[in-house]
Design a protein around this nucleic acid. Structure first.
Lengths: 344, 344
DNA sequence: TAGTTAAGCGCAATCGATTGCGCAATATTT
DNA sequence: AAATATTGCGCAATCGATTGCGCTTAACTA
């Protein structure tokens, strides 16, 4: 049923010229007469010709493709990132090959393999929740493929980095909670080997320290990124007499779980319990009460990461030793943390 | 900075064998001795060899890649779809090339071009909001690339189709509203040339008819898919004396706009105004009141579409004339339509 | 008008991997 | 031991497009 794919040779034969002429005509080469070009283009359309980019790329030694590896595409932040990347790449005529790691290290490694084999000219990656080893990125670099990490990055891995200023925004956000009169603030977040959670927790800690507040280790979890875990922890932390009066969550989803469960348990938010999330998922502005969060500027991060990668490709730099690019997130103060201010 | 990419020839030279032997060794060809295989594999690792899939695909005449074109990836339905597709493709060792049309016809055409040029072995597509012309899909078919459409499809285009039973679920959902005592039901949705909106409106109409209710043409909009449009229409329809007592929205986002604005205007939902959405976006379960919606079973649709496409590829069928595959959506009845039942 | 330049196109190698065919060496069979 | 089969690998063409070099023929310069 499928007719053989048509090639430049078919066009050449039909026109009684050589493939070289056809190739040049299609590229608008100056040494080909307008008449021939017109004939070639016409015949190409007539035969429904489509250039074979595998052949072309092989010959030219470049794929004009950038690879993107992210944990999941159904996160607001990451889909914004994609938009930013696509914008930049489109201007430069690059294609984008998107792979999800689904937060699995194994998948991530496989994704990188795929990208190398497809000869992408550079890789953009935000590592999975499980990733602690960077030999796969190393492999890419050694294969001549520059790697730029963004958001979730392995700091020890040499290469371009675009980062959120999580430490500062976590610091600011915690101060906001303290300003609102919350004192016994719990923390829920992700694994500390991931830079982002380390920084978010770090900023939180520093703010608590700076204001002379001690944090109760019982109210700290580094294993809480899902709604379910948020709910579980809410039940655990809020069932006794002694409970936090606020929660700093490094993820909107665990914040959501916390918020829902705490409300279910009869607490009023933000009057009795303040809650903040992180990532500014769309639902944060829609739930009741609306959830204070942090806008990570996904679009900008995507643009910055793509630009950085293209720069590295242009300058043929593999291991970028320059300083990371920092993007300042924006605090999205909403109802869940807006207790009527109390004297300290 | 980038060392030359290593090829099988480099391995061959290092081992004093020919490239054929290396190629066969890497494929675990039976005619190559275990000893040689071991040496080749070892040397490949040592040299950091990665097969060039462009060369391989070119020679083999197949890319082992499927193309996916969707309006946007940041829609819950579509990201579920992607998961379903990935599951199926992974079993069969196919790669996935994802492109967003961003609801633009022009982008969609470009995406298809890209896919053809990359010699994808099949295309999965859910068309953009603007698409009314299918010559780009035709082009793909003529180039020997089978096309399977899902969800948003051009019914007149020959080829595999996976569809939601929108008509039935819209019918059921409308009946649900009527059962709850709503009578003056308005409709907001998308362009009627898109099958899904045509069917959703059709199901709505049929239910109204069947129950002897007339619909007020002033309360029908086919240009309302965004939150903003929902809000605008809410202001328009609910400011006078005479207003709907329920809204059937063919999109969660316009339903959201409606709901928020109507609440802002002082109406109680669902007591005074019932609202239903469509697509079961995550926020529908989180807002107040929770929004009745329709689960389109994205995962299943993705799986079904991918399987259908693979079948067509296997059987080398380009124009599938068989019946479309229908997936039955699920009603997600929530608070926004759960008025205390009144006698009719 | 002889000599120079430019226009227009063909030849053939090349990118990296794959594969049918063939050949020699070894193994197996009778 | 002769005949056959098998093992192990090399040769060379091939996939489709690109491109440096070279050869005509036409156009132009002095």
């Amino acid at each position: 049923m499928d007719r053989k794919k048509v090639t430049i040779n078919d066009i050449a034969e039909a026109l009684q010229v050589t493939a070289s002429t056809v190739a040049r005509a299609l590229q608008d080469h100056p040494r080909i007469s307008d008449k021939t070009k017109k004939r070639v283009i016409e015949k190409a359309r007539e035969l429904n010709y489509h250039p074979n980019s595998m052949a072309s790329n092989l010959r030219k030694g470049k794929s004009n493709t950038i690879g993107l590896v992210i944990p999941r595409i159904n996160r607001n932040f990451f889909s914004n990132t994609i938009s930013g990347i696509e914008q930049v790449l489109q201007e430069r005529g690059f294609q984008l090959l998107i792979c999800q790691s689904n937060e699995k290290f194994e998948r991530e490694v496989a994704n990188i393999q795929t990208m190398i084999q497809n000869r992408v000219e550079g890789i953009l990656i935000s590592i999975s929740e499980e990733t602690q080893d960077y030999s796969h990125l190393q492999l890419a670099q050694e294969a001549g493929v520059p790697v730029v990490q963004f958001d979730r990055v392995g700091m020890q891995f040499p290469g371009g980095k675009v980062l959120n200023d999580d430490l500062v925004s976590a610091f600011d956000l915690t101060n906001h909670l303290i300003d609102k009169g919350y004192r016994n603030i719990g923390y829920v977040g992700g694994r500390q080997y991931l830079n982002i959670y380390q920084n978010r927790f770090g900023g939180f800690q520093q703010a608590m320290d700076a204001r002379g507040l001690t944090l109760n280790p019982a109210w700290v979890s580094h294993d809480a990124l899902s709604q379910e875990r948020g709910e579980e922890l809410a039940r655990a932390w809020f069932s006794g007499q002694n409970h936090p009066d606020a929660i700093f969550a490094a993820s909107d989803f665990s914040a959501l779980g916390m918020l829902l469960e705490v409300k279910r348990m009869g607490f009023r938010v933000p009057e009795e319990v303040g809650i903040t999330g992180y990532a500014n998922e769309p639902f944060t502005a829609l739930i009741v009460p609306t959830l204070t969060s942090v806008d990570q500027k996904g679009l900008q991060m995507g643009q910055a990461a793509a630009r950085l990668l293209l720069d590295q490709i242009d300058s043929r730099v593999l291991t970028d030793i320059s300083e990371p690019i920092w993007i300042r997130p924006g605090l999205m103060i909403r109802e869940s943390s807006m207790r009527k201010s109390q004297a300290e």
